[in-house]
Simulated assay, not measured.
Amino acid sequence: MHFDTLALRATHQSDPETGAVAPPIHLSTTFARNEANELVGDYTYTRPNNPTREALEKAIALLEGGAVGMAFGSGQAATMTLFQALRPGDHVLLSTDAYYGTPALLEQVFHPWGLTYTRVDMSDLDAVESSIHENTRIVWCETPSNPMLTITDLLTVSRLAHEAGALCVCDNTWATPVLQHPLDLNCDIVMHSTTKYFSGHSDVLGGALVFKRNDEFAQRVRLLQGLSGAVPSPFDCWLVSRGLKTLGVRVRAQSLTAQAVAEFLDGHPAVEKVHYPGLPNHPDRALIQQQMNGPGAMLSVQVKGGADEAIRFIGKLKLFTRATSLGGVESLIEHRASVEGPTSATPKNLLRLSIGLEHSEDLINDLAQALSL
């Protein structure tokens, strides 16, 4: 089936008891037993499992082409549980350009616990190979990366990881399975912040992991998911499932608008540089066409000047909401270095744009008026 049909059918199960087309939300935290003390159904308590969460996990696994999916209370909870499945003394290889919360977890939580990590430019394959240690257990990719939209060659990096006995993990939040399938590119695990495109409406927090194989490591992560309780509520799961129904339609429409916005900004005299996979001058254009079905709806732009000029520019925008996060139906813009804090390595003149479902001409006109004043 085409992706849109698959996404709709994966989250569409009519209630067998009432015939309700919209699936019910099972809010119960606990589940009854009969007179013989046997469970009435397959569930005991919502922390280890819940029917609404199980439906979401199966849908996400289906869309990513994996064997098993797991839902968490946030993208950070998903990442943290994956690192918890490692052992003290293990090593993680991480991209230099990645969501700032990932290295923050490693540095502030797991490094004191005994994990070591190295950051490397994932676009430099020689550097990746030389940075993999004997004790490397995870090579963590993020492509396109946040916020510079650097592209990682997933086939090659996964091969290098496997040759060293490590797992290759890909944060696929920005591309989504609409545009990229890391498991088909030999990655072992996919991570998502379902807060973003999966839910799509900026109203629910969530995360997910999808495993290519339901192996011993996946089962260990499942154990930790239930023991730690870093799981989403049934209502949050229901909201993400509802968002999945329109995922393909939204991402493709947003990507078309992002392409138009990027092309406008790329030619503007007040702009220093645009970072967007859909531009013909992108240095990794051939790789993008090889492993992605489209450039996505995220872009970053460096305006001429520094932080003051960048903040002054976004202060004049009327249609873009000045807020962090991404993937919602509304267009957002943020001064990324301010969000990441004083240790940020992001250029001070860089702004990150999440393109929503507004008409492209309206967004371009808004950007034009802000750049011209």
Results as ranks from 00 to 15, higher is better:
residue 80 M to I: 09
residue 84 Q to E: 10
residue 58 K to T: 12
residue 78 A to K: 01
residue 65 G to E: 07
residue 72 F to L: 04
residue 68 V to P: 03
residue 65 G to Y: 13
residue 67 A to E: 05
residue 54 E to Y: 15
residue 65 G to A: 06
residue 76 Q to F: 12
residue 76 Q to E: 11
residue 79 T to K: 09
residue 58 K to C: 12
residue 76 Q to V: 14
residue 82 L to F: 04
residue 67 A to V: 10
residue 66 G to P: 00
residue 81 T to K: 00
residue 79 T to W: 02
residue 82 L to Q: 03
residue 56 L to Y: 06
residue 61 A to N: 10
residue 77 A to M: 09
residue 55 A to T: 12
residue 61 A to M: 11
residue 82 L to T: 03
residue 54 E to P: 07
residue 84 Q to A: 14
residue 79 T to N: 13
residue 61 A to Q: 05
residue 63 L to A: 03
residue 56 L to K: 06
residue 70 M to P: 05
residue 75 G to K: 03
residue 62 L to C: 15
residue 57 E to Q: 13
residue 64 E to Y: 15
residue 83 F to L: 15
residue 79 T to A: 13
residue 72 F to W: 04
residue 56 L to N: 01
residue 74 S to G: 13
residue 69 G to E: 00
residue 58 K to H: 14
residue 76 Q to S: 11
residue 70 M to G: 06
residue 61 A to V: 09
residue 82 L to I: 07
residue 62 L to K: 13
residue 70 M to H: 06
residue 54 E to G: 11
residue 81 T to Y: 03
residue 62 L to I: 14
residue 68 V to S: 01
residue 64 E to R: 03
residue 64 E to G: 03
residue 55 A to W: 04
residue 83 F to W: 05
residue 61 A to R: 01
residue 75 G to V: 02
residue 72 F to Q: 01
residue 72 F to M: 05
residue 58 K to V: 14
residue 73 G to N: 09
residue 61 A to F: 10
residue 84 Q to P: 14
residue 76 Q to H: 13
residue 61 A to C: 12
residue 83 F to M: 15
residue 66 G to C: 07
residue 82 L to K: 01
residue 78 A to F: 01
residue 65 G to W: 15
residue 67 A to N: 07
residue 54 E to D: 12
residue 65 G to N: 04
residue 76 Q to M: 09
residue 54 E to T: 14
residue 57 E to I: 09
residue 80 M to F: 09
residue 59 A to I: 13
residue 72 F to K: 01
residue 61 A to G: 10
residue 66 G to T: 09
residue 84 Q to Y: 05
residue 69 G to T: 06
residue 59 A to V: 15
residue 68 V to T: 09
residue 66 G to Y: 06
residue 60 I to M: 06
residue 71 A to H: 08
residue 59 A to H: 09
residue 84 Q to V: 02
residue 71 A to R: 03
residue 72 F to T: 02
residue 81 T to A: 14
residue 74 S to P: 07
residue 71 A to V: 15
residue 77 A to K: 03
residue 61 A to L: 11
residue 59 A to P: 01
residue 78 A to H: 00
residue 54 E to S: 10
residue 60 I to R: 00
residue 73 G to H: 08
residue 69 G to W: 01
residue 59 A to K: 10
residue 82 L to E: 04
residue 65 G to S: 08
residue 66 G to F: 11
residue 73 G to K: 15
residue 79 T to L: 13
residue 84 Q to T: 12
residue 54 E to H: 15
residue 69 G to V: 00
residue 74 S to K: 08
residue 68 V to W: 04
residue 74 S to R: 09
residue 65 G to C: 05
residue 74 S to V: 07
residue 72 F to N: 01
residue 56 L to V: 13
residue 82 L to M: 08
residue 70 M to Y: 12
residue 84 Q to R: 14
residue 55 A to K: 02
residue 55 A to C: 07
residue 76 Q to D: 10
residue 73 G to T: 09
residue 75 G to I: 08
residue 83 F to Y: 11
residue 84 Q to I: 02
residue 70 M to A: 12
residue 80 M to H: 08
residue 67 A to G: 03
residue 81 T to S: 13
residue 64 E to Q: 14
residue 63 L to G: 00
residue 61 A to T: 08
residue 58 K to P: 04
residue 54 E to R: 12
residue 73 G to C: 14
residue 83 F to Q: 05
residue 77 A to C: 08
residue 71 A to W: 05
residue 78 A to M: 08
residue 65 G to V: 12
residue 74 S to Y: 11
residue 67 A to P: 08
residue 83 F to K: 07
residue 73 G to I: 11
residue 67 A to K: 07
residue 74 S to A: 15
residue 57 E to S: 10
residue 66 G to W: 08
residue 69 G to Y: 05
residue 56 L to D: 02
